[in-house]
């Protein structure tokens, strides 16, 4: 087993060096399929949702298709996907009592495989109180109001472990966020943000991920900026990264001042960006670089 991993690493390294030498220039890969553990096929493209009105053409593509073959391969096998360390930690936490009530997630929600199936695919969503909540909000609501436990930080490792474990239960299910009704005003604000040019570099999300997906900024192959794989393992950061964490990084890279992770603004943006991937299967926990 260990030898096998070493061999994989050598192969991956060789593939990486070959890529650096040749300098890949490609549209989304068309000759690869995401089949996980050799058995679970997860489609990585889907017909573009109607609300995009052709802004991304006919087809939406997972960011997986824009990554190098070695990165794609890591996501094909849960043994090679570093996020599964965090998924395992999240599942352990799921079953462990915490807080003044002495309750675990499992005490109310039972098996994570059953109760959390499909949850991540439909988030963020509007609550009964009319607030737009992401998965992190629901987790912390349970912790503080039902368990008597401390809230976790939005980008804390504990939170990412849990959102990865919960998100995995939707893997393969199409993104299905609601954008009409009570969600509509939040969605409109998120859309406005998406096209706002922030920072000294005056760049919007759309400048890179709508106008230029498939192209390169230096060696960075621009994707459509789909968020169906979050939280994910980012090789560049050597760790788990949440959707809002990536939003923060993108706005910072415009020489701008980002909104806070967990802010109203980024939850609205999350809803809008999620809706640009309507129909694309959830890949949580994905691997990117």
């Amino acid at each position: 087993m260990k030898l096998q991993h070493t061999m994989t690493a050598v192969t991956v390294l060789a593939a990486t060096l070959a890529l650096i030498a040749t300098g890949p220039r490609a549209e989304p890969a068309q000759d690869d399929q995401l089949v996980i553990n050799g058995e679970e096929e997860v489609p990585t493209q889907a017909p573009a949702p109607a609300h995009l009105d052709g802004a991304l053409g006919d087809t939406i593509y997972s960011g997986w298709l824009f990554r190098d073959p070695d990165t794609r391969a890591m996501q094909k096998d849960d043994f090679d996907n570093p996020m599964f360390l965090f998924v395992d930690a999240g599942i352990e936490t799921w079953n462990t009592p915490d807080g003044t009530e002495g309750k675990s997630c499992a005490d109310c929600h039972n098996a994570i495989e059953d109760s959390m199936k499909g949850v991540r695919a439909a988030l963020p969503k509007v609550t009964e109180k009319g607030e737009l909540w992401s998965l992190e909000n629901f987790v912390n609501d349970c912790r503080t109001n039902r368990m008597g436990a401390e809230a976790w930080g939005w980008n804390s490792q504990e939170m990412k472990n849990m959102t990865a474990a919960i998100g995995l239960q939707s893997r393969g299910m199409p993104v299905a966020v609601a954008i009409d009704g009570e969600a509509a005003p939040f969605w409109e604000k998120g859309k406005e943000m998406y096209y706002t040019r922030y920072g000294q570099l005056e760049m919007s999300c759309a400048n890179c991920h709508e106008d230029n997906y498939g192209n390169y900024i230096r060696s960075d192959h621009l994707s459509q900026g789909q968020i169906n794989g979050f939280p994910l393992y980012r090789l560049k950061d050597q760790g788990a990264v949440s959707t809002h964490q990536r939003f923060v990084g993108c706005v910072r890279d415009t020489r701008g001042v980002p909104f806070e992770a967990g802010s109203q603004e980024f939850r609205e943006l999350e809803l809008y960006v999620a809706s640009r991937g309507l129909g694309l299967p959830v890949e949580t926990p994905a691997v990117r670089h």
């Binding site: 706002t196 920072g199 890279d253 001042v257």
Partner: peptide, 23 residues
């Protein structure tokens, strides 16, 4: 144009000090 202004100091939306993310 996508191109940033190379000798421009504003007006910008939420400008930060270089890449510090700080206003």
């Amino acid at each position: 144009s996508f191109m940033p202004g190379m000798y421009k100091v504003g007006p910008f939306i939420r400008p930060g000090v270089a890449y510090t993310a700080k206003p």
